[in-house]
Design a protein around this nucleic acid. Sequence first.
DNA 1: CGGGGTTCCTGGCCGC
DNA 2: TGCGGCCAGGAACCCC
Length: 274
Amino acid sequence: MPELPEVETVRRQLAPLIRGAAVINARSHLSAKFTSASDAIGYTIASIDRRGKYLLVGLTNTTLESQPSNRELIVHLGMTGALYVDHAWPDDPYCRASWDFADGRTLWFRDIRRFGRVAVVPTGDHRSLPTLHHLGPEPFDPTLDGPRFHRSIAASRRRVKTQLLSQRPIAGVGNIYADEALWRARIHPGARRVGLARASALLNELRAVLLEALDNGGTTLRDYRTPDRSEGRNQFHLDCYGRSGRPCRRCATPLISRELDQRTTTWCPLCQAH
DNA sequence: CGGGGTTCCTGGCCGC
DNA sequence: TGCGGCCAGGAACCCC
């Protein structure tokens, strides 16, 4: 379940491998989620950025006959997506898209459950990806402070956890790091009102959790791998996610798990009381 | 346009 | 050993 730390780890490994590569061919799974992969043919990879959980691969037009127009290859890893660069790859039923480079190498997008997505769009035109189009600030955006984060949260009466997962108050947070940060900030995930002080604390804990996970190379629960096929190490540092029934590391009360807005959520019933 | 519900996917695991 | 049932869950999509 790649969230910001996992996607950023992938970005850092991938960037030096594919920057400057010229895409000469592409193939994809027949699902519309992947078929636009071929729109990258004829373009050269100029940059590899990230917004939230989206990888943004900058493409420069290298064909002489058409008007210069730059595009963007957008990859969302979904739940089980992974990217690899290789000269060849044995038949893999889970390869959903691939791009052949002029130098003989190929970029492979493997995604067992097909929750991922590939899109090629005119640079900056994110209208076909509404969550990206309306994406909130990056966690380490210096203009994101306690008051701004609080205003964003307070503008809606939805549960605070649901708001975090919406990507609107802050970009890149998924189920794991939402539960972890709420636990650290001692905020009930179902709270519909969060004051300025607690919102500021939540922002601080989100930043800490994401930074630590990034330092640990991300969280590998099952499928997450980096382009060099290594696993993350942050799964050994989780305090809350996946620990339902086990004692809270602060107060020893057994953590509980419930479905909140169709999302499994774990929290401490004592530390994170309403 | 916000909010709520539905859907897409498949491997792993559990119980019988 | 085989198999049905269930679970994980981001974000597009649809409807009110």
